[in-house]
Design a protein around this nucleic acid. Structure first.
Lengths: 225, 225
DNA sequence: TAGATTGTTAATCGATTAACAATC
DNA sequence: TAGATTGTTAATCGATTAACAATC
């Protein structure tokens, strides 16, 4: 019952930090493709990210065998197979909830459409915002969420509301059928097990950066370079 | 030579994932403080994040001994000591480079000032943007970066330029004396060892979320909840 | 053939969890 | 005292790295 070759590997429960790195490899593969290269190696794939060749091979091994000893990997082939594995070989509709400054910025963010993520609907409960059109999308009230999610078969959502309403709004999104939430509110969300949440907490990121800088200044490396 | 008690612990090289979690504990402590609680426990501190009590205690042990057996932790005391350890007991000036949509959104983001991160200067090379004022800050050309960094003793920067200029601009920031970069460009930065970089790549985050959702749909949990 | 590079197994390393004596 | 909870040591778990036979 070896299923390591088929497209949607029911295989093992997808080893943890691996998927994030595979996304990076795919990025680099696409850039190699643009450069017109036809083959690559585990060494080359990990290099821009400081990832060792053994790790690259181990990561890829989670999903199957894609290379040839002595040769390496076919760029086009590996690109296609990783796209399929990661699910980015098709469009993903998104809902965006919360049209503050960040919501507006995300609506214009070019990195999403270029990866086939399409914001198909935006929601806000502020009556002054409802009815406005940004980037060709009209702001709807949250009551319209469930119908929209069903109509577009949306599974992913961007949550850009203030921290104090994040949990409540997340629950509405989940009730509407959303299965994955990219949460920009600086608040932990508690969600049922079938819903995935990634919290992007910019202050925490900055805080960690500040700590590292403080540390590096404390022990050595004192002034401007 | 036990230095586990002094404020800026020269002690051990700050165990990896620990700092991120300590930031979370601090957040929760501040919320407990607002609720008027005076003591807490390792159990309570980790609970909102799904972190086990043993882990909380181990994490805190990296920096010293702050609790009392049978009692727990003093909320005010632990808050103060964690703030000092993380370096958020003082203002951190920031530069922001790149005034696109995301740059503008970050300039308005309330999570930064509330954690004492102050955007003191913003830069862009587009002559149409230079001279504009947003949120009371005037956009300057990149040539002005070095002088500004020196004047404000800035060590941290937000990088919000397109991917294809990210490396070049990062080098300018580093040359100007910046020591930590929060990078929003979807591109890996290569930097000298005394400079810390955290890349916030929203497409990668979404991609990983999409993968998890796809996986959860594939094996079980089929429709809207 | 010699050199390159794979997939995989074994060894190392680090992080998480459990257990428990010590303390309030 | 009994119950709670710490700091820390030991046990477990998982992730990274090194090594190498197999292959082109």
């Amino acid at each position: 019952m070896d299923s390591s070759r088929d497209g949607h590997p029911h295989a093992k429960p997808a080893p943890k930090a691996v998927v994030g790195r595979v996304s990076l490899y795919l990025r680099h593969l696409e850039s190699l493709q643009r450069q017109g290269l036809s083959t690559t190696s585990s060494d080359q794939l990990g290099e821009p990210f400081g990832i060792k060749n053994a790790q690259v091979r181990k990561d890829l091994a989670c999903f199957g065998q894609f290379g040839r000893p002595g040769i390496g990997y076919d760029v086009d082939e590996l690109t296609a197979v990783l796209r399929r594995i990661l699910g980015v070989d098709k469009d993903w509709p998104l809902v965006l909830v919360g049209m503050g400054d960040l919501g507006r910025a995300l609506l214009r963010y070019r990195g999403f459409p270029s990866r086939r993520f399409r914001i198909v609907a935006v929601f806000d409960n502020d009556p002054r915002k409802v009815g406005q059109t940004h980037q060709g999308v009209t702001v709807e009230p949250l009551e319209a969420l469930r119908k929209s999610v069903a109509a577009h078969k949306t599974t992913l959502g961007l949550l850009c509301v203030p921290a104090d309403s994040a949990q409540r709004v997340a629950e509405q999104m989940i009730a509407a059928g959303i299965r994955g939430i990219l949460n920009f509110a600086p608040a932990p969300l508690s969600t049922p097990p079938h819903v995935s949440v990634t919290t992007v907490d910019l202050s925490i990121q900055l805080e960690n950066l500040a700590y590292k800088v403080q540390e590096s200044i404390d022990d050595g490396v004192p002034r401007a370079g």
